[in-house]
């Protein structure tokens, strides 16, 4: 009983600590990102697709920065990364190429449809698809950690396509 309680406490503490680290790291990452994009350095050159979007939508500069987006979305039962999402992955890869001290965690998720264990595997497939693309863009595999939560950590709670489409995702999280 004591042991169980202690380990629960430890889980809680680790959870709180990690959660704290994660959000902080992400915020810092994004803040630094914008500067590195502005530098127009080699790796960031592949962010050209961002310019495309700007031309199409004439969005505010903050909105067209693919590095400000750290979630990649997927189609149902698919691990394919579409063209828009590729631009996001490329921007993050460029950022990582310029910041060797930073590592990345790719957290794969699925929507609630289908079975939990299959969705856990699907979430892993999604995080590995992003990992594979980042590696192709020059990021060493030792800097990338993939995790799947399957359908266990939805970001939207509804049972409709709007929620499902938000839940089929990979979150790109930075860690030191």
């Amino acid at each position: 009983m004591q042991k169980v309680k202690l380990s629960i406490l430890m889980i809680l503490m680790i959870g709180v600590t990690l959660a704290g680290c994660k959000s902080k790291a992400v915020e810092e990452g994004v803040a630094v990102d914008e500067q590195s994009i502005g530098d127009g350095s080699g790796g960031a050159g592949s962010v050209g697709l961002g310019g495309d979007e700007g031309a199409l939508g004439q969005a505010l500069p903050g909105d067209i920065d693919p590095l400000s987006q750290r979630v990649i979305y997927f189609e149902y039962d698919s691990t394919a990364i579409d063209a828009d999402s590729q631009a996001i992955v490329e921007a993050h890869a460029a950022y990582l190429n310029n910041n060797y001290q930073i590592n990345v965690v790719l957290e794969g998720h699925a929507d609630e449809r289908g079975t939990r264990e299959y969705n856990l595997a699907l979430g892993e497939g999604r995080s590995k698809a992003v990992s594979t693309m980042m590696q192709a863009l020059g990021i060493g595999p030792e800097r990338i950690q993939t995790i799947s939560y399957g359908e266990e950590r939805p970001s939207a709670l509804g049972s409709d396509e709007a929620s499902w489409s938000l839940n089929r995702r990979v979150e790109i999280l930075y860690s030191n």
């Binding site: 380990s7 889980i11 959870g15 995790i147 939560y149």
Partner: peptide
Amino acid sequence: STEPIMSPAWSPDGSQLAYVSFEER
């Protein structure tokens, strides 16, 4: 746990459960 728990499975003699826990992230 503050992290997901999944897939409980009873041992055939009913004395144990196997399961998946994300407690170590």
